[in-house]
Design a binder for these strands. Structure first.
Lengths: 247, 247
DNA sequence: AATTGAAGACTAGTATGGAAGTTTTTCCTT
DNA sequence: AAGGAAAAACTTCCATACTAGTCTTCAATT
């Protein structure tokens, strides 16, 4: 983090800790705070003009999501992107969302599917306007609404958490090429299969869509090596090496 | 909670908050603290001889897991068992674990599968000895080791969290009938399919296993209605009804 | 008797101070 | 100049005090 940054939390009645979580999560996912960067309760508390306690609680929540790592008495840092973690998140997401696609094809009612379609229409406009940020937000909404159409709105909460790991990679990819057209086509294919009630086709279309990241992941990791966890020698927790001294 | 209860946290070097989470989670899942019961930061802090802060942080983590609900300025309570929440958790768990079973069948190496089998052997002994608690612990370990054999050890973390919702139901079921034999047979079927490398059969066996709870769920909900969330009229958050007063 | 309202007892949220521990720096010794 | 020990500057963790909001209770009023 560079300068004094104040989030747009003016008249909100939400607890401070909650707002901090939202702000920090967004900053991390959009790479405004870089992977590996060190955070500090005191520092952030000063920055936002609050006490250390809400900042601490925000750290705890972000640690649960796997976005930061809190090392007692040592410090808190944004975890670097881990290829293994991204692949694991992708695996979990694929498992859940393929099941969602199946369910949506089986019992998605017309009303809910209309919501999904409306989402894709808006995404098409965003793509035409070149508004990548809005397109990405609508991408997320597409998946969320599809889960709702499948009668499993809560499953999105789990997917969302896994998605955070993948989003940073995606954000790096965005600056490189612009695969909006590809994403759009895949979304349309998923919806078409769901609309026709073909559950197997819907699952397959979703699987194809969620496999996409695997082709770009190694390229991106090679391009920004300092943002990624060192591969191969996964030393585990590099800070829990206890010294022999003590007794 | 009834009396003054001190957990077995004597010489541990773990942070207090973490130990509190483990103790509270176990107490909730085993129904020692009943669904709907009210918790209090101050009360628990006094009980354990610690300050409110670690208790508060434990509440935050449990709220993330969906085991308690924190209502600002109103209180914290153990969430009642929700049929919908259990079904959602089951859906997510099925999606992930079926994918795990497939992967395990495809690329599970002999070493990892031997671990799984050893787990089932131990479970067989526990069943013969009538040690239900140990059997349940080994049940959990079976699934965990299968995830490891599939090369997706981290996916177990997600399943574990969903499982918490289901475990309370299972705990009620245990006191009723003893379905250990059924569980054992299903576990053996899963392992057999995985061992033979038949990914589709492994997935199917896992799906059957994880569908089991659906037959007992309505019966259990009817038997202990006060432990379950009121069905049908899901009033949303019964405590966020804002009064009109204010301006 | 029923209703209303104010006071008191709760609740969680936040701020602040200090304790335990780690890492870095600095200065002394060799 | 190089190595090592002490000290200073961090870090998160925990305890305590206080604030703000909610709920209950009980008394006064209608």
């Amino acid at each position: 983090m560079d300068l004094v940054t104040l989030p747009e939390m003016a008249t909100s009645a939400e607890p401070i800790a909650r707002r901090l979580v939202d702000w920090l999560r967004h900053a991390i996912v959009t790479m405004r705070i870089r992977p590996g960067e060190k955070l500090s309760e005191q520092d952030l508390a000063r920055r936002f003009g609050v006490s250390r306690q809400p900042v601490r609680e925000a750290f705890i929540k972000l640690a649960e999501s796997g976005l930061v790592r809190v090392l007692p008495q040592r410090g808190t840092m944004v975890v670097k992107i881990s290829i293994e973690a991204v692949e694991d998140a992708r695996f979990i997401r694929e498992a859940i969302e393929c099941a969602v696609a199946r369910e949506a094809a089986r019992r998605g009612d017309a009303r809910a599917l209309a919501d999904v379609r409306a989402c894709l229409d808006a995404a098409g406009e965003a793509m035409a306007a070149g508004d990548a940020e809005r397109f990405f937000a609508l991408d997320e909404e597409f998946h969320q609404r599809l889960a709702a159409a499948a009668g499993r709105p809560n499953s999105w909460r789990v997917v969302e958490e896994q998605k955070a790991q993948m989003d940073r990679v995606r954000y790096l990819d965005m600056s490189d090429s612009i695969p909006m057209k590809t994403v759009m086509a895949q979304h349309l294919a998923i919806l078409a299969a769901v609309d026709s009630g073909d559950d197997r086709a819907a699952e397959t279309a979703m699987r194809v869509h969620l496999t996409e990241i695997l082709v770009s992941l190694p390229k991106i990791a090679a391009r920004w090596p300092d943002l990624f966890e060192a591969q191969g020698g996964d030393v585990g927790d590099p800070g829990i090496v206890r010294r022999a001294a003590g007794a």
